[in-house]
């Protein structure tokens, strides 16, 4: 009986986690490049428990049978499908159409990766992300640069105040064997983990890497209707498991009040 209580509680907890993830998706819906996630539910391994079963002689004997233990949540699954590319008219807005990622260096010196975003020129003329992380390898504009542009092959052009265009570097793209396992650290930045594998160098335009789109931002692939559906499903399943807990509790109460 206690087992049933624990089993139902595992369902409540798992649905709670599903609601959390759906809510998280809804809050990230407006962030360019954000990806939808969902919880994976995994049935717990069954345990041997004794059931009274009918034996060959027409009697009842206790036999060990596997009985379920409930559910747990596993790794969150990410939907990495491409979001729509939205034109922004900002020459330093960069999106990647494909799996490729841009490499940036965090102020700590650690390498992180991003699927695009709004870049800008900082006070030292370096091309940095919105949060100030420098591209790796770094691209620095010469003195007197009015603005920078990125071309689809990743070439970065500096336009001087006199209108002279000069090629000053190229964005490089890398990919990972399992980008889903990368750690999201906010501001659209990802860190590699043991599960994602090492960065694999590539060139824009290669299959599996994709192309660079400038003046574009990738919209989120989170669909609010989908998330709403998930919230409703999780809520119903949550309620059902709470009801199961309540029923088990009432049964336990019935057993404990047997002797009045």
């Amino acid at each position: 009986m206690w087992t049933s209580l624990r089993t139902a509680a595992s369902g409540v907890l798992a649905q709670q986690r599903a609601l959390d993830v759906a809510a998280d998706n809804l809050t990230k819906m407006q962030i360019p490049g954000s990806k939808s996630q969902r919880v994976s539910f995994l049935e717990l391994a069954p345990e041997l428990r004794y059931f009274g079963v009918q034996d060959d002689q027409g009697g009842i004997s206790l036999e060990a049978r596997e009985a379920g233990n409930g559910v747990r949540t596993g790794a969150a699954l990410q939907n990495l499908s491409q979001g729509t590319l939205m034109p922004t008219d900002q020459p330093l807005d960069v999106a990647v159409d494909g799996d490729g990622l841009l490499e940036v260096m965090l102020p700590s010196g650690q390498l992180a990766y991003t699927h695009g975003g709004s870049f800008r020129m900082d006070g030292l003329g370096r091309l940095v992300t919105a949060s100030g992380a420098e591209l790796s390898p770094g691209i620095t504009a010469p003195a007197g640069t009015a603005q920078m542009e990125v071309k689809p092959d990743g070439t970065v052009i500096a336009v001087s105040t006199e209108g002279v265009r000069q090629e000053i570097g190229q964005l490089k793209l890398v990919r990972f064997n399992n980008p889903e396992a990368m750690l999201q650290i906010g501001q659209n930045l990802l860190l590699p983990t043991g599960g994602s594998g090492e960065a694999i160098q590539g060139t824009a335009g290669e299959p599996g890497i994709g192309t660079i789109a400038s003046g574009m931002l990738e919209s989120s692939n989170i669909d609010p209707r989908e998330e709403y559906l998930r919230v409703v499903q999780a809520q119903r399943a949550y309620e059902l498991n709470v009801r199961a807990m309540k029923t088990v509790d009432e049964m336990l109460q019935s057993a404990t009040t047997m002797r009045r």
């Binding site: 009986m1 087992t3 049933s4 209580l5 089993t7 139902a8 595992s10 369902g11 798992a14 649905q15 599903a18 539910f41 995994l42 049935e43 428990r49 009985a67 379920g68 233990n69 409930g70 559910v71 499903q233 999780a234 399943a237 059902l240 498991n241 199961a244 029923t247 088990v248 049964m251």
Partner: peptide, 13 residues
């Protein structure tokens, strides 16, 4: 009841 609660816990699995 143990089986029913396990089924319900896995309603979304």
């Amino acid at each position: 009841m143990e089986l029913v609660t396990n089924n319900l816990a896995n309603a979304q699995t």
